[in-house]
Every structure is written in C-alpha cells, then in structure tokens.
Simulated scan of single mutants.
Amino acid sequence: MTVRRPLIAANWKMNGDRELVTMMAATLQCIDSSHEILICPPVIFLSDFPKSTQYRLGAQNVSSEKAGAFTGEISADMIRAAGAEYVILGHSERRCLFAETDATVLQKAQQALRVGITPIICFGETLSERQQEKTMWVLAQHLDAVYAAQPDLLAESVIAYEPVWAIGTGLTATPEQAQQVHSFIRQHLARINADAAAKVRILYGGSVNADNWPTLFSQPDIDGALVGGASLKPAEFAAICQMAKE
C-alpha cells in the first residue's frame, strides 16, 4: 500500500497582513501535526514568516517567463529567493479571471521546477459541466493537456481537485463525490505512469472548513486540502491541520 503524507495548504488569495502572519506563525508553532503544512500568502508577505520546521511557504502564482521586460510579473527565481518551496498554479480564479490555459499552466510549472519549486496544479469543473455529467471528460482533457504533454511532471507535482462551483460559495462536494473524482484522477494518470500516479498527492479544495474536513479526509484518495477562507482564521486552520487520517 502506498503511503502519502497529507498536505494541508492555505491559500490566502489577496487577503492578509503582517498581523495575520504573526498570528498564524505563532498558532502553528503550538500544534502537533504529522501533516505537511503549507502557507501561501500574498508574495509580499513570504519573507515576513519566521523560519520554522512546522510549516513551509508557497506562492500563489509565478511568471511563465524566466526574466525580462514583463512589468508586474514575478519570476520563479524571485519567489524561491523569498522562501517559496511550492507554488499554486491553474487555480480556477486564474483560469476564469486571467484567461490562463493549460498551456500557460504547463509553462509556469516548468519555470517552477527549474528552480526546485513544487507546483500544485489545480483542476476542476464548473457547475454547468457537472450538471451535464461532463466532470470526468473535462478533467481528462485538462489532465492530458498538462501531464501527457510532460509525463515527468507527474512525479514532481501535487494535484488539487477544485470543483469551480465550490470555490468561495460555501458549497462543498460530498465525500463520495470528491472521492469518485480523486479516484478517477489517479486511475486516469496511471495510464501515463502507474507508480507516479499511486504516489502523487491529490488535494481537495472547495469551501473546506473544520466541520466538513473530517469526512472528506476519511476518503482513501484525498491526501490533503487546499484551504481558502478558513485559512485566514489561524485557530480553524490549525484545527484542520491537526485532524489525523485514520
């Protein structure tokens, strides 16, 4: 049986300040968790977190370019220098609001890997796609566009399943729905590399909180969470991190 260390990742989005950085760092220092804990604040706050073995740091985006005349962009080298070990890519908000495609996500993943940063690559279906029973077809198209195009990426990344209809809405996939999709993702990717597919961590994201997380986390193919709003509340995020998988 493959053992995958759970990963609990906080996506602060465009929220937070230095007071929250201080509160979160202090709260996480006091918990006992066997999980890997990741904080992804706005990039400007990365260097404000004190060094700690309790958590790792990540960014929410990275440029697809190495360097150059790209006003406002931040390179992989820069976020690495600021302390990032992970980066979130392909989040539904980036896809919907900034027209990012799978090709863009792949370019950004390549830049991250170039400097030793692990990409967390997000995939998910819209409400209309789910209602039309196209969830698996949509996910297969996205997965193939990234992983079939670059098979070695599978062993070097983390996947986050984020049903778009559950992002920031208060709606959450049922544990059974989430497990069905996570299992499909793993089986689909096994056609590319069975060993890597068995080992890759697949996170669930979509209005995760301390109340719904225990039942989600009990599912065999859910290896952690990408937490949005609840990650802005240090006590609640710490509670999620402490919940152990049976």
Rank of each mutant, 00 (worst) to 15 (best):
L113S: 06
C30D: 09
D17A: 08
W165T: 11
F123V: 05
T71P: 10
L139F: 08
Y86K: 05
P6R: 07
L127N: 06
A155I: 05
L38Y: 02
A149V: 05
L127P: 05
A194R: 10
W12P: 00
S92N: 07
K13M: 14
E246K: 15
A166D: 00
T215W: 00
A112D: 00
A235H: 13
L171M: 12
S92F: 09
G124Y: 05
A9L: 10
I44L: 15
Y204E: 00
N61Q: 08
L154W: 07
A82Q: 01
T22F: 13
H142P: 01
T215F: 02
T118Q: 05
D152R: 10
N15R: 13
N193Y: 06
A196W: 03
A155H: 08
A25E: 06
T135A: 11
P151K: 08
T71Q: 05
A9I: 09
V3S: 13
G205N: 10
G224S: 01
A76T: 01
A81N: 14
I121F: 02
R18S: 12
P50Y: 10
L171D: 13
Y55Q: 07
C241A: 11
A196L: 07
D195E: 15
T174Y: 03
G90W: 05
S218E: 12
G68F: 00
I167N: 02
R186D: 03
C241G: 06
P220W: 00
Q111R: 15
F184Y: 15
R130G: 04
G229L: 03
A25Q: 09
L127E: 14
F49L: 10
I88Q: 01
Q60C: 02
G224D: 01
R5W: 04
L106P: 01
L203F: 07
R5K: 14
S75E: 00
A25S: 12
E65H: 12
S52V: 00
E73N: 13
E125S: 01
H182W: 02
W137M: 15
C241E: 05
V146F: 04
F98K: 10
V115S: 05
S33D: 11
D221I: 03
T135V: 10
K66Q: 08
V146N: 04
A198N: 01
G124K: 03
R95K: 13
E85A: 01
D48G: 00
P50H: 12
T27I: 02
L106T: 10
C241S: 04
Q219H: 04
T71V: 07
V21Q: 15
D223K: 01
V227H: 14
Y147P: 02
S207E: 12
S34N: 14
S128M: 12
L38M: 06
P214R: 13
A198K: 09
I167E: 07
V138M: 11
A196Y: 03
G68C: 09
A210P: 11
V164S: 03
R191Y: 04
A59G: 13
K233I: 14
E19M: 14
